[in-house]
Amino acid sequence: MSVRQSLLAILNQGPCYGYQLRAEFDRRTGSTWPLNVGQIYNTLDRLERDGLVQKASADKDSADAESHNTFEITAAGRLEVAHWLDSPVVRTTATRDELAIKLAIAVTLPGVDIAHVIQVQRTATFRTLQELTRTKNATDNPESAEQLAWLLVVDSLIFAAEAEARWLDHCENRLARALAAGTATPLPLSTDVPKRGRPTKARA
């Protein structure tokens, strides 16, 4: 998960404690995905368990609580950061696409005006796209690394919304063709009801 690696990459710049990590993550991502401190410490615990970070050697002079919660990256952690930056993010299987699921189910249900479902979605998608564009355009030229990072995040959301709009157009055309060809009939419940309980092993 990218939060884990993001925190590690931040720690690669120097030791941090939990609140500090949260602030660093937020300012680098335009506060788009707020994290709570609990999540951060959970992540740090797991990173420590995996040998990627360790508690920083306590500062002799300050015995305050914060210095006990300061973490620093290990050599293995640095390798992990380098590996993360060097490998692609694979989106496919991990995240369920709620909209794809919704349309897939809807197209099989009797009495659903799927064209209307698509249209309602598209209007919402375009509104999102407009809002994002407007937000982005308020920042003509980024003036700091934070703004630049934030613009990259906004751009990614814009392109994702655009892709969704195009996909919806495509769905609409596909549906129209299927209706014309008579292959868009809904699915009744299957009479071939699966047995209750655990699935049994398929016979060879």
């Binding site: 300012r27 809002e131 937000t135 906004v154 959301l157």
Partner: peptide, 27 residues
């Protein structure tokens, strides 16, 4: 505003809301 035409008719419209609720805003 974005209007959608189909077969010579306006079938839908999307209006930007004044304030974006999507993002925290500019750092």
């Amino acid at each position: 505003r974005i209007v959608f035409l189909r077969d010579g008719r306006i079938v839908d419209e999307s209006r930007a809301s004044a304030v974006s609720s999507l993002l925290g805003g500019l750092p």
